[in-house]
Design a protein around this nucleic acid. Structure first.
Lengths: 339, 339
DNA sequence: TTGAAAGCGCTAACAA
DNA sequence: TTGTTAGCGCTTTCAA
């Protein structure tokens, strides 16, 4: 048994200071009036005894824990380390600034997770949750809504008054990617789709189509392949484009990972990038800065999304009449060697 | 105010089932005997009412939270996303298997963090902590030891009976890297050191020196440069090697990040890798698999370190007479194009 | 400005 | 097999 010494409690302090526990509690939390002299005396004893509040007891009593759950896709996050690290950093920085703690809540993205969100909410351990990259129309979100439990979705978009989200301008991002290629002289632009069923993926597809139409370019079914936000899938599917009689001259990929897969395939085929085929990605992951050639891409402000997400959640938690917030953060084209 | 409906409590269940709270508690925790019939009746009511235990109350009463704190270097983890993600995955998988939760505890690696560990321990929120990549001889570890609070250090080595750690065979890893270069015909082998003051870094340096001596190779001060586990630093310091009259023919870097910086510098100088200069790294990060050339490296089992670390910690927590565990996991040479 | 009493929801220890 | 009692350490509410 690890018998940690019996910790100092409020009671110890109050007895030593010859005041009630309540007075000590007031000093500790800063709420309520305490005579300066009393306060001083108590503070001194707190220091002497090295008192630390028992957060469990405090939370049980006050019905607030100052802990936020971060729901991430159980296994998938391994393949999105760039994303996970950046978004967590943003969330974490705001958490630190506001004295909140972060709890990791891995939940499967595929299996039936019915009841999982409700469990989190009802555990009373969390004041709110941030959901990362959940699937479109996740049916279990209603568990959170029904319980009126504060939550924010990141990299997810749904204009519902029951759902707060922070996402980036995916539609616009796809547009500027296509316009950039157009500016470089390309007229036959292919698209590699992301996972069907993620709102991000859909918006980028719509942005691609919208831009083609705005620019008077042709849209062809066979120039659209499905990469599933998966590098290997994009790598193999890419062959379909290369087998075409009328090949595109540029490929816009719904994320950088797929762009990397596509570039690998092109290079194996002996094609020069960007001379024979231009490539644009989406995200701006670090790999794209050291790949050969370096990757032109649409930068998403992931760190900022994390920050804003946490800010929105804290507002939801602490405001008297919370209202769902919908935010789309701006994206930016980063020109590199692949175009 | 978010007025979540009043949650169902043990009391509600017990009244409805016409048994005492204790009996319900027994059904819930699985400890103690309960008549099958009673159990069945209670379980039914639990389902009906959608009861979820209040973890706060349970923890306060039982003095166990089933939450583990993961202490990571506050800002630094941003630059080690590969490491952080892998090690967290390992920790998380074992946590899930054992019904533990993970709490992120960012603590600065540089500033004075006196009292921070103690705060974690005394908060009563955590059953134990895992410390990632802390500096050698971190003076505040004693706070944990004095409180007899369970903790494990990862990627840290100190043979003390007060400290449990899981690390990889850094010394041996450096040896096989040098031996590999020797096998390729190299006799003048330079070394790029990591951060002075991390045990990993020191061990790799010692392994390098040991291997040179075993192989009867010359050790020269000017063939050792300091990269501080920092890609840019390695990039710039690398010039010192190139300015030498008697240049080495191979460079062994204490981590992959630095190796990437070194390769960049070499290529800018017009040197061919591995023809003009061979390069070996340490870690096996993903970048090394797609760089040009791909990087020969010593693979550390980071995911495994995370797993073992969590297992060791759980043992420490749940064993009656815990004893510090010291583990060095095996490393492995991964041959690629850079040698 | 301070204090007393009650309770947050659960479990440990003991008793029946 | 089941129940009773007594907390865990804090905050809330109300009274002084």
């Amino acid at each position: 048994m690890n018998d940690v010494k019996r910790p100092v409690t409020l009671d110890d302090i109050s007895k030593r200071a010859k005041v009630s526990k309540m007075t000590v509690s007031r000093v500790l939390t800063g709420k309520g009036q305490v005579a300066p002299k009393t306060r001083e005396k108590i503070n001194k004893i707190i220091d002497e005894l090295g008192y630390q509040p028992n957060l469990l007891a405090r939370s049980l009593s006050s019905q607030k824990t100052s802990i936020i759950g971060v729901v991430l896709n159980k296994r998938e996050h391994m393949f999105m380390f760039d994303y996970t690290t950046k978004v967590l950093s943003g969330i974490m920085d705001v958490a630190i600034e506001n004295d909140y703690q972060l709890m990791l809540c891995p939940i499967s993205a595929d299996k039936d997770t019915s009841g999982e969100y409700e469990k989190l909410a009802r555990s009373r351990m969390l004041d709110g949750v941030i959901l990362l990259k959940r699937k479109e129309g996740d049916p279990h979100i209603s568990e959170l809504i029904d319980l009126n439990f504060p939550f924010v979705m990141l990299n997810y978009k749904k204009f519902s008054e029951d759902i707060s989200f922070v996402d980036s301008e995916n539609f616009h991002g796809a547009q500027i990617a296509v316009e950039h290629l157009y500016g470089k002289g390309h007229r036959k632009i292919a698209f590699v789709r992301g996972r069907i069923g993620e709102t991000n993926s859909n918006d980028r597809y719509l942005g691609y189509q919208g831009a083609l139409s705005d620019l008077g370019l042709e849209f062809r079914e066979e120039w659209v392949i499905n990469g599933d936000f998966n590098q290997e899938k994009a790598y193999s599917e890419c062959s379909k484009l290369l087998d075409l009689d009328d090949m595109p001259t540029a490929i816009f990929c719904a994320d950088d990972n797929m762009a990397l897969g596509v570039m690998r395939r092109l290079q194996e085929q002996g094609l020069k990038i960007p001379e024979d085929m231009a490539v644009v990605g989406f995200d701006d992951i670090q790999f794209g800065t050291i790949s050969t050639p370096t990757l032109t891409t649409v930068r998403q402000p992931i760190y900022e999304i994390g920050r804003r997400g946490m800010e929105v959640l804290l507002h939801l938690i602490n405001s008297n009449e919370p209202k769902a917030t919908h935010e789309l953060l701006p994206v930016e084209l980063v020109k590199r060697e692949s175009t």
